[in-house]
Nucleic acid binder design. Structure first.
Length: 561
RNA sequence: GGAUCUGUAGCUCAGCUUGGAUAGAGCACCAGCCUUCUAUAUUAUGAGGAGACAGCUGGGGGUCGGGGGUUCAAAUCCCCCCAGAUCCGCCA
């Protein structure tokens, strides 16, 4: 990075532009033969009124470069290209990584406080594959934000009341014969939801609505059943959260807050921000978003009412600078309305809310539907992947100890990596077989390359003060080191744009650079001791960056596989 | 009908915010590349095991959905059209 800074400073003197403006102009050439950093001169030609080629040539002759860090400059086409002094670049990059270790790429604490809400499930059925995408994003985005110095609060909302909850309850009441769960308790509850849906009729629907009224009136029998079944579901959720590595700083319950949004709407109505329609409901006419009911004619609240209150509650609890909600793209419209409402009410956090929307996770067979029971259950899927990993390990006759524990880690790595490697907002088709393959752009591929690196480090420990970096001259060594240096820009970009896929994408490139190095440059059997140590320092640097990265993705590493 | 998103290699996707050098990966396909031990009458061949643990190289394959526009320059910006997904509920 200091190389780039140096170029920026030199150029800003010659071009009479701000450093940031220069920085934005600079790019990385598509081919290393074209240099390490390049300045396209097309835009400059607009203001300087000269042929871009001429500008590049003039700059080249004017610049007083320090040969110590920039080996040479070349004009190719209308580009002015800078070539780093490799020796200097290598030693400064590796020294930095080996010194900073796990802090490499991380920034010191700032004052930014960010609340991130996920996965906010309904408590009438177990977590499914969609929730896993939600949770993978939630955890990795949280960690990425923390890596850049922000303080992050993870919060979860249990949607634990409403007609959908009553449906599971009705089915249990009718056909459950008061049984206790004989399986994972959230699955037990979910079975009754599916049962209800399969037998759904207008009468049953009415019964569910009637039960909701009883619940809201505080009917004891209904409340007891609700408490019992909800505690089963939540207990099951907690097991899954633990297995998947999700933790929350605070959990909200819809049942406790669903009435409280009312006041906010009524206040807004008094201020004349909202209208009443002919049925007495309070509505708002949002330009471009249509008319939206905020409070029913009978005075009861709806989804948007509660979400408005929750937004305010989160602000009161955490005084955040930024609030992120992770939910499926189906809800894009809902959150647009919510944020518009927050603006209309002029809440102090207006403009600081962000919906991180993710696309649906489809199966090769099509969309999952929980009411039809065609959902991919989260626990079952992890079990299945774990089993597949186990078979693979046994097939390869490796890791005879702890096969189960290793298989579980591989399964989770496969899953998380697959769910994070795509841009969040697109729909994806989940392919279990592809996700767990040991080849290709997969979690196991990354884990495996880390294992390889670690096996070398078990036999050789580089010590910083004895390394002769000048011995590192092969193409594979240099390109791996350049790739390691890119981590700084990647972690920043990935965090800033809330896009773990940028990091994942980079890791595949990095791992592939490492594999090339591994193939071509012997470490343990290197010609002499100095080269051995120098190369081991690259391996160590790789180990550091990959460890950090996997951790940022919420992926646990393995020692062997 | 309206809104949002998506369309890039046979398949799955990056790249689009901020327009720049031959449009990149992975999978699949084709052609290749280590050392050593064991089995085989021998050669061709090649099965199984081991290694710093399952690696690598090259190749073919593209109307960047279609059309128009802006620009010195468009996958990227603007407009129109086509196809798919989602939403448009006093459900959550």
């Amino acid at each position: 990075m200091e190389f780039k800074e140096e170029i920026v400073k030199l150029l800003s003197k010659e071009l009479n532009l701000k450093e940031q403006e220069i920085k934005d102009l600079l790019e990385t050439p598509p081919d290393p033969k074209l240099g390490d950093i390049s300045l396209p001169c097309f835009k400059l030609s607009n203001t300087l009124k000269k042929d871009p080629k001429v500008i590049a040539l003039e700059l080249k002759s004017k610049l007083k470069i320090n040969k110590d860090s920039i080996k040479e400059t070349k004009v190719i086409g209308s580009y002015l290209n800078f070539y780093f002094n490799n020796e200097k670049f290598i030693s400064s990059t590796l020294t930095k990584i080996l010194r900073e270790k796990g802090r490499y790429g991380f920034k010191p604490k700032n004052k930014e406080k960010i609340v991130i809400e996920f996965p906010s499930p309904n408590t009438n059925k177990p977590l499914h594959l969609g929730h896993l995408r939600n949770m993978s994003l939630g955890e990795s985005v949280s960690r990425l934000l923390e890596s850049q110095g922000n303080t992050v609060f993870r919060v979860n909302l249990n949607n634990d009341r409403g007609v959908h909850i009553c449906k599971s309850m009705i089915a249990y009441k009718k056909w459950g014969s008061n049984r206790l769960p004989d399986k994972k308790p959230d699955h037990f509850v979910g079975d009754f939801y599916v049962m209800f849906s399969k037998k759904e009729s207008p009468d049953l629907e009415l019964e569910a609505q009637e039960m909701l009224r009883k619940w809201e009136k505080g009917d004891k029998e209904t409340l007891n059943l609700w408490k019992k079944m909800n505690s089963w579901t939540l207990q099951g959720f907690n097991e899954t959260y633990k297995r998947f590595g999700s933790k929350f700083d605070k959990t909200y319950y819809e049942s406790k807050i669903y009435k409280k949004g009312k006041v906010l709407i009524l206040e807004g109505f008094k201020k004349g921000l909202f209208q009443k329609d002919e049925k007495g409901a309070i509505i708002i006419d949002l330009i471009g978003l249509g008319k939206k009911v905020l409070l029913r004619g009978d005075g009861t609240s709806i989804y948007i009412t509660q979400d408005l209150y929750l937004a305010k509650l989160k602000y009161e609890d955490f005084k955040f600078n930024k609030s992120i909600i992770i939910s499926a793209s189906e809800q894009n419209y809902h959150f647009k309305v919510l944020f518009k409402l927050i603006e209309t009410l002029k809440f102090p956090f207006a403009g600081s809310c962000f919906h991180l929307s993710y696309g649906m996770v489809l199966l090769p067979e099509g969309r999952m539907k929980s009411r039809e029971g065609t959902v991919i259950d989260a626990d079952d899927l992890i079990d299945e992947l774990s089993e597949m990993a186990k078979k693979e390990i046994i097939l390869r006759q490796k890791a005879t100890k702890n096969v189960g524990a290793i298989a579980e880690k591989i399964a989770l790595a496969s899953l998380k990596c697959y769910l994070l490697k795509f841009t969040a907002h697109i729909d994806i088709v989940f392919n279990p077989k592809e996700s767990i393959s040991f080849e290709g752009e997969t979690g196991p591929y990354l884990l495996y390359s880390l294992v390889r690196a670690n096996k070398i480090l078990e036999k050789l420990t580089p010590s910083l003060n004895k390394i002769n970096f000048n011995l590192l001259i092969t193409q594979q060594e240099i390109s791996l080191i350049k790739s390691l240096a890119e981590f700084l820009g990647i972690i920043e970009k990935s965090s800033k744009s809330l896009s773990p896929h940028i990091l994942v994408d980079y890791l595949f490139k990095l791992a592939s650079a490492f594999n090339l190095f591994y193939e071509n440059c012997q470490v343990i059997n290197a010609e002499n001791k100095d080269l051995k140590l120098a190369r081991a320092s690259i391996v160590k640097a790789y180990n550091i960056v990959l460890n950090s990265s996997l951790s940022l993705l919420g992926i646990d590493i393995v020692k062997e596989m």
